[in-house]
Design a binder for these strands. Sequence first.
DNA 1: CGTTCTTGCTTCGAATTCGAAGCACCTGCC
DNA 2: GGCAGGTGCTTCGAATTCGAAGCAAGAACG
Lengths: 167, 167
Amino acid sequence: MADSPPSLDPVQLGAYFALIEVASLLRHAVEQQLREAGDLSYVQFQLLARLGDEPSGRHRMTDLADGVVYSRSGLTYQAGLLEKAGLVVRGPSADDERGVTVTITDAGRALLGKVLPGHVEVVDSMLLAPLSRDQVEALAGLLTPVRDHMRATPPRSAAPRRRKDGA
Amino acid sequence: MADSPPSLDPVQLGAYFALIEVASLLRHAVEQQLREAGDLSYVQFQLLARLGDEPSGRHRMTDLADGVVYSRSGLTYQAGLLEKAGLVVRGPSADDERGVTVTITDAGRALLGKVLPGHVEVVDSMLLAPLSRDQVEALAGLLTPVRDHMRATPPRSAAPRRRKDGA
DNA sequence: CGTTCTTGCTTCGAATTCGAAGCACCTGCC
DNA sequence: GGCAGGTGCTTCGAATTCGAAGCAAGAACG
């Protein structure tokens, strides 16, 4: 590959735009369903879902923030909201005195269970409907490595100038 | 169709989660680049890009809002910001007196051209890097129909026109 | 041990976001 | 024509979001 191209070719552009649009549209649809079904925002649902997935039902704040791609301060705010609603509990971390552990409550699990069917329904009818089983598999196979690649790259700060070879 | 399943199987879930995560991470990375390169938010960039794509350089407000999946009020706000920055101009619509047409200015095109290389660079290194040419093609081929399906299915911003039958 | 750098979370202020309500204009129907 | 309803955009208020700054606790290093 030569220097960074001034633009992407149509295929690359198509993949990029389609990705963004699909994600945006899906998010919107899901958000509406969640609001109606359980008065939850998408982030709140994501948090509960991540906690509910864990057998222990708990996670550290930072892990949650990174997991859902959210700012730390934003997470503090949302955790406060969820706690006030009785859906999670915050407590000290076992091994790290300054860490905070968020744990889903029974009420949280209950609400999660209540909104899940509708959520699945939306994802199914919006995202999965036009795809065959093999295509869904292919999609997962394509996006998973990309996700891993993105997760592996440095998040922020010191992004030393990318030098062209031999510069 | 049987009853709505209580959950998605691992493959479906994997595709869904990977999609959301990839989109979130990409957006985050892009947002940072845009902020540094041209002090633009992602939405603002999307708007300029859509306008710049059009030969006429103009679009109606509603089309823009739908295009980038944004609320109308939000678009009004952003259009105001962009106009104040001299990147776009708002004017009356030709055929519709209450319509507003947004047109990109030379300054807008210039800024777009200025931030584009870095933008492309980010998309390239984050999203496209781990994929072969064929895979990018496959991804586009998978997501485009999904996008079209989503665009066709829900009356997103359109007000749910409910009729009182036999009231 | 004490100093210094790093990490985890919260608080703070400012900017953005959305939906509901409001206005002005168009359309359908009589 | 003229009225009821629909569409396009903006204003308004309330909620959410982020980054920077602040604080407390761990880790590295002499």
